[in-house]
Design a protein around this nucleic acid. Structure first.
Lengths: 153, 153
DNA sequence: AAAAATAGTTGCCATTGTCAACTTATTTTA
DNA sequence: TAAAATAAGTTGACAATGGCAACTATTTTT
C-alpha cells in the first residue's frame, strides 16, 4: 500500500520533470520565433493584442486584458498607440458606457496581415524540413495536448 | 498536377494555422506558469540562467548566451548579480583565460531548489485534475513533438 | 607578427511592464 | 432608492528588462 503510494509519487515527479523539459524546449522555440518577429515596429505584446482584435472583432479592452493576462494599464497604452497609428477604431458599446468595442481599420488590417504573413513564414521555415507525414503528426500531437489540457478543445 | 500543388499548399497553410494556434495556446500557458513564478526575487531570465548553471555544472557564460539566445551583456549583468548575491562561484578555465566556469554555491543551490520546487508545484497543479492515463498521454505527445522538431530527441 | 575572432564587461539608452491612484459608469446590497 | 461595492479604462510614476555598441583581454587564424 505504502509502496503503491511511493510509486505513484515517483511517477508523478517524473511526469512533472518531463513536462517541464517540454516547457523549456518550447519556451526556447517560441522565443526564437517571436524574437525575430521584431523586424516590424510592433512588439510581441502588440502583435498579440492585434491578433485578439482581429479574431475578436468587436472586442473590448477588458476582454483582451483577461484573455492575455496583461496589465490593464499596459493594454490601455498599447491601444492608445494603435489609435494614434490609425490601426483601430473604437465604438461605444450600447448597453455599457464604460466599454468601447475595438475593431481593426483598413490600415490595422494591413499591418495585421503583414505580421501574420511573417509569422506564417517562420512556421513554414520550421516545418519545411519535415516530411509531410511528420508535419501532420506534429499538428496532431499539438491538438491532443490542447484537448487534454483544456478538458475539451 | 496544378491541382495537386494547390491542394498541397492549402494543406500546408492549414497546418501552419494549426501550429500557430498551439503556439498561442502554449504562450498563454507558459505566461501563466512563469508569471506567477515571480513571487521570488528572480526574474524568468534569471531562473532560466540559474537552471542552465545547475544542469550545466561548470558552464561558461557564452554557453548560456548561445543556448538561451540571450544578449551577452544582459547575461553578464545577471551573472554579476548572482555573484553579488553569492549564488555562484567562478573558476578560471585552465586552457583559456577569457573563460570562467560557473557553478552554483550552497546558497545558489538552495535558491535553485526553491524556484524549482515552485515550478514543480505549478505543473503539479496543472495536471492534478487529469486522470493519470491522460497525464501520461500528455507527456507522450510532448516528447513526440520534441522528437519531431529536433530530428531526434 | 599582424589581423581576425572570441569571451566577457560596461555604458548608454529605449522599451517594456508593474503598481497604485483615479474617474466614470454599472451593479449589488441594505 | 441611496450607499457601497465592483468593473472599465486612463494616467502618472517608476522599475525591470533587454538591446546595442564600444571596449579590454585573450586566443586563433593567416
Amino acid at each position: 500500500m505504502i509502496d503503491n503510494v511511493n510509486q505513484y509519487m515517483k511517477d508523478k515527479t517524473k511526469l512533472i520533470q518531463d513536462i517541464r523539459e517540454f516547457n523549456r524546449f518550447y519556451t526556447r522555440l517560441i522565443g526564437l520565433l517571436d524574437g525575430h518577429l521584431l523586424d516590424s515596429n510592433y512588439s510581441l505584446a502588440e502583435a498579440r493584442i492585434l491578433y485578439e482584435i482581429y479574431t475578436g472583432r468587436q472586442i473590448s479592452a477588458s476582454q483582451i486584458v483577461s484573455t492575455l493576462s496583461m496589465d490593464k494599464g499596459y493594454v490601455s497604452r498599447i491601444l492608445k498607440k494603435f489609435e494614434k497609428d490609425g490601426l483601430i477604431s473604437k465604438e461605444n458599446f450600447s448597453t455599457d458606457a464604460r466599454v468601447s468595442l475595438l475593431a481593426l481599420s483598413e490600415k490595422g488590417l494591413k499591418v495585421f496581415h503583414t505580421l501574420n504573413q511573417a509569422s506564417n513564414n517562420q512556421v513554414d521555415t520550421l516545418i519545411t524540413p519535415l516530411a509531410i507525414t511528420k508535419q501532420k503528426e506534429l499538428v496532431m500531437h499539438m491538438q491532443e495536448i490542447m484537448q487534454i489540457l483544456n478538458g475539451q478543445q
